[in-house]
Nucleic acid binder design. Sequence first.
DNA 1: GCCGTTTTCGGCCCGACTGTTTTCAGTCG
Length: 566
Amino acid sequence: MQNHEIAKILDEVADMLEVSEDSFFRVRAYRNAARIIRDHPLPIAQMDLKQMRELPGIGADMAGKLKSLVDTGDFDVRRQLAGKIPTGLIELLRLPGLGPKRVRLLSERLRIRDIDDLKKALGAGALRTVRGFGSRMEQQLAQALIGEKHAARARLMYAEAAQSARALLDYLHREAAVEHVEVAGSFRRRKETVGDLDVLALSAAPAAVMEHFLRFDAIKQVLGKGDTKSSVLLSGGLQVDLRVVARESYGAAMVYFTGSQAHGVHLRRIAQSRGMLLNEYGLFRGAERVAGASEEEVYRALGLPLIAPELREDRGEIEAAAAGRLPRLLAREDLRGDLHSHSTYTDGRASIEQMAVRAREAGLDYLAVTDHSRRVAMAHGLDPLRLRDQWREIEAVAKRVEGIALLRGIEVDILDDGSLDLPDDVLAELDWVVASVHYKLSQSAKEMTRRMIAAMRNPHVDVIGHPSGRLLTGREPSEFDLDEVLHVACEEGCALEVNSQPERLDLTDSACLKAKHAGVKLVVSSDAHHPRDFALLEYGVNQARRGWLEPADVLNTRPLAQLRQR
DNA sequence: GCCGTTTTCGGCCCGACTGTTTTCAGTCG
């Protein structure tokens, strides 16, 4: 049983406990445990009771339940709740305006057990007979049920959200009362997908800012508006929450709205333990404001150094900060080269020379030209003959374009059985070999693991490209045993890629962290198919930073000479 | 259900906005 599966079950139990009006704190204990387990780099299923108990937020009781879940597939509390609460009822929680209290009310008063029941009750006008439900609620629910399929729309990819964010910020800057404005939330934490934009504005005249905001022409619907906070839906479906705060509160508000929620809760607990109160307006001791204008100030007053937004997930960053052991995170400027790019020899859109020139402009010292191998027929993949042809071209361009070193590379396909799409003697003549899976992504975990390991065992392979093959636009990651792959990668000195394409971002942040712990090196690559794609490296760096990666963990931070003698 | 630099019992993060109320509960982030 995978960590995310365990976490999902714990969250479901928390939902059921909430609907049955169990203790709020018990519910929170389950949610907390779910989050801890979801984020944990090692498989919980392989831990014994003692190791489970050592996780923060998992006590003796929870550890026992987890053990039972892993061993038998279920545990006492879950069994009891499942007999009492229909699963359809839990799904109602996802509807807007419906929380545990109202769902329970619906179930008791109207015998509603699932979404179908709710639809019928709405149609019969039965809802308004229940205390706490009025016409607005009926309307809201009816609308949500009509748009049910659309409501489940995916979160936006970070790069997409960035476009909306830029347009919105440009617009907000036009109001003179806005002294400063930034996007906080998961966007600022650089999560790979973003559900909404939390925008924070600094102003002494909140009313003017609100008024201006609500006139933004991309707004489709105003979900709520107040003196300091408003929520809207943009025409693209993205939700935006705007908060306006005063100067003395800006830092505290930034901490608060950047989140994550778990990080914030942890900070507020620390504040409390020191006899202070932390909220979005500041850090207070009694009536005295101890800090609030800047984030640095707030963290410092809690005895901590500033923590990078990308780390704020309560995955140990607060403990690391307290111990003075925060990582020195990778930055875009640390990257000296790009080790995955394409040209018109296969499916790239620009010549080797155009790519080289732009890579140099992007501040890179070296670029590996890694076109596809023949198996990728769609891209007119290279056979040994055309590959040798390309080497002559690389050599010629290297003479014409100064200031950047070009490496002879390949993105060689990993075939179904783990063998490579080009013979060893050809691979031996290359400076840099990326090995990637492009076909038969749906093999069993066992087959895929064996396939990747076979590729890594080939001494010419330097890095595995986009290891999971997942696309945020809808393709699930292929299944394989990450621990096993990391083990072999470490053994063979084979690196894993962090692919910067916005829809790939593969490896994920938590896989980066796992790789780091396993002693495996990473490569942050653009996988550029166009000269402008070198700008995408920013996204790969975001992902790497969320995975706690430091420059030393990433091979292409090294000068070329050092990379070669690896 | 977790946890301990006041505690092994008695706490547990915090506030804005909405809808439905006539002073507040529920939801949301």
